[in-house]
Design a protein around this nucleic acid. Sequence first.
DNA 1: TTAACTGCAAAGAATTTGCATCGTG
DNA 2: CACGATGCAAATTCTTTGCAGTTAA
Lengths: 172, 172
Amino acid sequence: MSSSVETASSEPAEILGVGEPAGADTTHGDWVERAERALAGAGRKRGGARRALLALLAGQECALTALEVEDALRGASARPVSRASVYRILDELEALGLVQRVETGQAMVRYERVCEHEEHHHHHLVCDQCGLVMPFSDAGLERAIDSLSERVPLAVSEHEIVLHGSCRDCAA
Amino acid sequence: MSSSVETASSEPAEILGVGEPAGADTTHGDWVERAERALAGAGRKRGGARRALLALLAGQECALTALEVEDALRGASARPVSRASVYRILDELEALGLVQRVETGQAMVRYERVCEHEEHHHHHLVCDQCGLVMPFSDAGLERAIDSLSERVPLAVSEHEIVLHGSCRDCAA
DNA sequence: TTAACTGCAAAGAATTTGCATCGTG
DNA sequence: CACGATGCAAATTCTTTGCAGTTAA
């Protein structure tokens, strides 16, 4: 899979792999571990539904909607999880800072794993024609945001950046 | 009211006036005119509901939700407008590029006037505790975005940036 | 007079909640 | 055994549509 090296401000922005589960349980096993630990620490027991969700999210390179999560878990080898549980678990993970919401202006909230450090920190490109969502990262942009964060009347904890436009296929 | 001068990257980011209708019909009368022209050009007739909405939006410095628009028009001296019309008109204005959606991660879409040129171009600060939304602008950030826009596989037409955190009151 | 504009009420869609049951610690 | 985890179905909330009456051009 593509490395997550951030770009200098003249090189093309780093476009991260999209969609395909990048080796499910291994790639970000550390994230699953951290999640399990955080959940245990919060006095939670381990249920099958949540385990299935963690495994799925760990293997995703980019944000999914609750419905996409539900479908992904229903198909293939995964354990089906009811819609209510998907939402409940996603909320729970968000509260623990393990997952974050991404608003792409597509009428449905998307969720994606949050990594410690900045290894996988990224933002999103959204094609308004076909709905394609691609993750990207850019060092120059992060610098601008960091600098800016110190000059606003808000203790900034997170930031979200979405670029809208037409993807190559749709623009053609 | 505060001027919309953009900041150099070391000065505090420009925080624009929030909330209060900044002199309703006069401040951005040019926007209303442009809107009326665009609508007429699209073969639309002039209805009272739409006129009320244009007047309200023209006086807003920042994004409102459909419900806030409905409430604002119900109270005071404005003309009440049904919820359906609020949504319908907002959609219509968005399609004509007169208004744009802003996703602040608060479960409801917000809408705000779009100005030609960049006079009032700005982004948003959202307090996750109390829900306060403040507009701000920053030249350094815009430069980073412009540069970045040329290096991604998307014909970028718009960008949205939201900083989340705690406002001064809530952080205290 | 025609076509747009509106309001009201019903319809949709995404997300949340209530409740009974099952499973983990 | 007690309390968290889940599924199912009903309930909410925001947004969209269908229709019929009103109004601008």
